[in-house]
Design a protein around this nucleic acid. Sequence first.
DNA 1: GTGAAAGCGCTAACAG
DNA 2: CTGTTAGCGCTTTCAC
Lengths: 372, 372
Amino acid sequence: MTATPSEAPDSGTGARDSIAAAAPRDRKVTIDDVAARAGVSKSAVSFAFNGRPGVGEETKERILQAARELEWRPDARARALSRSRAQALGLVILRDPELVSTDPFFAQFVAGVESHLSTVGYALVLQVVDGQDAEKEAYSRFAREARVDGVFITDLRVDDERPSALAALGVPYVVLGSPEGEGSAPIGLDDAAGVRRAVRHLHALGHQRIAHVAGGDRYVHSRVRREAWESEMRRLGLEPGGVAQGDFTGGSGARATHELLDQTEAPTAIIYANDIMAIAGISAAIDRGLRVPQDLSVVGFDDIPLAPYITPPLTTVRQDVFRWGNACARTLVALIEEREHAPIDLPAVEFVVRGSTAKVPMPSETLPEGNE
Amino acid sequence: MTATPSEAPDSGTGARDSIAAAAPRDRKVTIDDVAARAGVSKSAVSFAFNGRPGVGEETKERILQAARELEWRPDARARALSRSRAQALGLVILRDPELVSTDPFFAQFVAGVESHLSTVGYALVLQVVDGQDAEKEAYSRFAREARVDGVFITDLRVDDERPSALAALGVPYVVLGSPEGEGSAPIGLDDAAGVRRAVRHLHALGHQRIAHVAGGDRYVHSRVRREAWESEMRRLGLEPGGVAQGDFTGGSGARATHELLDQTEAPTAIIYANDIMAIAGISAAIDRGLRVPQDLSVVGFDDIPLAPYITPPLTTVRQDVFRWGNACARTLVALIEEREHAPIDLPAVEFVVRGSTAKVPMPSETLPEGNE
DNA sequence: GTGAAAGCGCTAACAG
DNA sequence: CTGTTAGCGCTTTCAC
């Protein structure tokens, strides 16, 4: 492969990306410098910067001015030490190797959290771990090293030990998606409502055999979704027969779909615990010669950005993960600062109807045949 | 919608998830307590914990034992202050509202970074910002507040000011994907190679009109991909005619695809700058009555977990983002600690052939017709 | 109003 | 090898 470097444009950009780096530098401006420049004492500067009474309006302006000129900002480490507060929150994520990258949850949640933290000057410290032991260890280090003032618990598991462990460690926390509503915050994100909407939607289209691909019963949110499917089916007088276990990955979604479709009384519609599995499920169905939605209706969960752009566009349940993140951050900060939690309201779950659901096929027409 | 709470199983789990929270507790064990319990001085404990000479083997064991019993870990804030090192690294992410959640990059990169940091006791502090000004501000705060000892620069832009700004601030950094290779680390992740492979693959299948959907020329990696496509086309004696601008989102991928397919000399194959656009592109093509890959071959970039599970499975370029993260972390930590950078090698880019590419259609058969 | 002084919990010289 | 002594840079009483 001897490339002839002939008419390469204005490149020079050897087609090779790389990791570049650069090193540090000189000394540091401290509160003393600012005090000196403003002609006041350290404490005056401190007071001015923390918006406390006891500093004259004019003096304050002079101090702020001096700080600006020196480009000074209070050193977070020193401040953390003297206030015994890290001014940081922790998020530890259990990295299911494949999942973490697919799941739209992670990034959006983090963005939501940040959207509040940045307004209150807290930082977010992240830790990605690869097992439950490491996870436990991570929380405990966060706590004992006092790196953070509080932590988020996400992906709550059934019989999760984290809340009690953290309580024992004396670390403030918020848990997202606890069905008990223990502690504070009567607001809730309602996975169940989304699933119920999905069931009713399909039922209204005439479907009777509505199956479910679950996401693993270890997770509370996953179990909640399955239970909601079950109970809504019953409520409508339908038998919640077909369930298949998935694990939120595409592969599991495809497998579960085949499993369901292999049954003698195959479903005419499937509700998946997330979009990834649903999309993989659509492919699996197509591979079997079924048409979606004519022969099989599919509903996902999450509304990932890709959902409108697959064929057919995916009908799904939309969660506003960003808002959750914001709400969680707000709650946790309030808790830490022992203020009243501002009342928090989360938007109701949305059900987005797109092209992957349709009327139930006429019993006789179920055979795959012909186009469109 | 009056639900009849009849045969609900072992629920009680009111179908409502929520945010729960709990609050803090008592006082803190310090290095003095450990020293007292071990019958030594503070400094002995400090030395023992930092693995420095000057502590007898037996004494050391006694100290460690005492620490264990007291469940003591050095306070990260105090340690940070006295060593003038935060023992933390910063990552600021520019949140393209939609993109951040789709992009497999973010989560995997973070996971990779962590995979090294956790072994050396550094924390990762994250900041998500929503504009270039906020981004700049974030970096500068990280630096001036000394919250972190170094930062990562990702998604390098053309004429990016961050490297010089950080250098001016005296903050160590590594930039991922700099084509200049300035500074250190001669290792590189080679986007260009991936694209060249894609072009050759399609060429080998007989394609001549191979178009490209780019990802926005502001980003270096995006430009590199486009340029690689161009130069490889020329090298093979083909005219790099069809380019359409996308922005890495599904919507832009669909639009760009229609644009390309509307041309009089429509392409028989399209290489997309990422998988999201490619998948949306496939849908767009299908909407026009084309079959993929029979009428149009499609190549993506990234190999997102969903890629094998769409219809048809996506041929794409796989990047080992996790490894980059690890490498970047390794490099940055070495830089901060002024050690020699352990030589770093990144795996070569992989080209994954799946079902979305096929031989070029016979000129006469291009009409959409019939199955398979 | 303002400034001196005592920590926050640890690290790192420095004598013993 | 061990203990004493200053800081790290900021916050925060408490006199002035």
